[in-house]
Design a protein around this nucleic acid. Sequence first.
DNA 1: TTGTAGGCGTTATCAC
DNA 2: GTGATAACGCCTACAA
Lengths: 342, 342
Amino acid sequence: MSVTIKDVAKLADVAPSTVSRVIANNPRISEKTKRKVKEAMDYLGYHPNFNARSLANRSTQAIGLVMPSSADKAFQNPFFPEVIRGISTIAHEQEYALYMSTGNTEDEIFEGVVRMVQGRRVDGIVMLYSRVDDRIMCYLQEQKFPFTVIGKPFKNAESITHIDNDNFKAAQEMTEYLISLGHERIGFVGGNLNLVVTIDRLLGYEKAIRNAGLPYKDEYIVHEEFLKEGGQEAVKELLALKDPPSALLVIDDVMSFGVLSTLNELGVSVPDDISLLSFNNVMLSELSSPSLTSVDINIFKLGYEAAKGLLECIQCPEKEAKRVVVPFQLIERQTCSKVSGK
Amino acid sequence: MSVTIKDVAKLADVAPSTVSRVIANNPRISEKTKRKVKEAMDYLGYHPNFNARSLANRSTQAIGLVMPSSADKAFQNPFFPEVIRGISTIAHEQEYALYMSTGNTEDEIFEGVVRMVQGRRVDGIVMLYSRVDDRIMCYLQEQKFPFTVIGKPFKNAESITHIDNDNFKAAQEMTEYLISLGHERIGFVGGNLNLVVTIDRLLGYEKAIRNAGLPYKDEYIVHEEFLKEGGQEAVKELLALKDPPSALLVIDDVMSFGVLSTLNELGVSVPDDISLLSFNNVMLSELSSPSLTSVDINIFKLGYEAAKGLLECIQCPEKEAKRVVVPFQLIERQTCSKVSGK
DNA sequence: TTGTAGGCGTTATCAC
DNA sequence: GTGATAACGCCTACAA
């Protein structure tokens, strides 16, 4: 059917192994035959068959991506395209392809990962999220299959290469920033408590509150689904308090959109009545009105480094696990202001 | 290294070919040996190697996705996660995996596609966009490689299975809707003119304008990059006219966010001063304030049908190309109102 | 420097 | 029903 190494060999009048060597750019092959073979390849339009190569080679030149459940709201977050952009940049440089696993349920996703791993469809995996007690991560560790994680593994973090922001510190600093603006009643709007990032940021928030000698109130902490309903619920709960917060630390820009929209419906003005500071600085965060003050966590770099780390794992399995910390930076826009009257 | 069909065969005391038949669920195999083999597989934790299977089979059980350049702003559009959700739903049902090709430049992407195709890494391809004179599409046609397109191919549309909304009709109806609200000065904010969808919607818009006997003014038609800068430019141009539009038909929700934010900065009120109607109804469109009136184009279904069509192409290559039209529906929210004084 | 031969893990085609 | 055996397309000792 399609052109194989043998066809090329025949035309160039050499052995198939010679052609193979030319492809691999084997140094001990004469320039002359190299040229001859290359001409034949061009002439026939030869392209190596990757499956055959993988089989002989035991390497697929592909890396697998594990995303959250596509039924999950988080899937729609612009975080993912951006992180994939980072991953694909380095994948391209090294001629790796991307293999995706999605599914509507946890089981589907798990099963997809098993197929990737056992079927030897990929050389390694990047986990695009980190959650508490993750089945997939346990499985990959058991199998000793190369993988890296974006975010901090809940346990065994030392033995797993992972790429993360210092979320604890980030949340702490941001809370301090709000405090420096005069806020003393600061709410925390978190997402899924299964996600390690939620936990880290919550702890950082708590630290700052306690350091400042402010009361740490449970009723200021809310965890909700993303988006509309979540944002709505969260906001309503918080505003219903006798002493509602004057500032909110929100874990994700998209969630902030929901919060913003709900506040707007309720006629609460941002930032005059309430300040909003969130994380991620996704592309759209400058487009809301008011535009979001947000922490740029450098999503692209998270992806880039995660893939880079993975390729290192694959290429030198002996190398020990490492932790890469990607810096963050506050982008001040329009949703934070000094507390009124100060 | 890992357990193979031979190990299973040995343990179950049968020939490798028998094991293979059990895997394939070959009917003419005795229940007894079937059970015996399955036990052995379970015991050893056997999983078939996909590469070997592909090689023998000439089928990879994977489909390739071609996205726009990740340097492109469009890449960040929530359209893509949603369309991928549709694709992966049916892919999962039939145990197909997803293979992704991205890149920062057109050349990179093209090269990635060539690798997918020639390297036999996938059985077929879904193009996630359709643009005028697309190199990749030409290539796939030349190679007679199975593929489907989301959107309408610019040429040879009859011979390519594609899944599309009736964008001409949609734009026409939406323009008529704005006219029915009393608007007579309606602007069109389009994206890249290379995209077929832009062209179709522009033509539908024109049709409605002419049908209504309204003047078709070139200065009401603006094409810009997505997002902030694009939206800003577009809006400024339009508002600078002696007779600025009272309503805008915007080709994409994300672009609408940009428009909305710019209008807001300029102190122009939506929908009181100007109405906004856009396309896609992405998840975030209800979160802006005011929330977007938008045409739901059923992105999930576009993806689902595209993958379904592709699997049909792959499974019965003889079948002729078809066009699937996915219905659309106006979702009325807060950005459209009757023209003031009517 | 190049050719020969065997193997990577499956499936498919014969036989029996 | 089941077992040999030859592909599938490529890589890699080993030999020459």
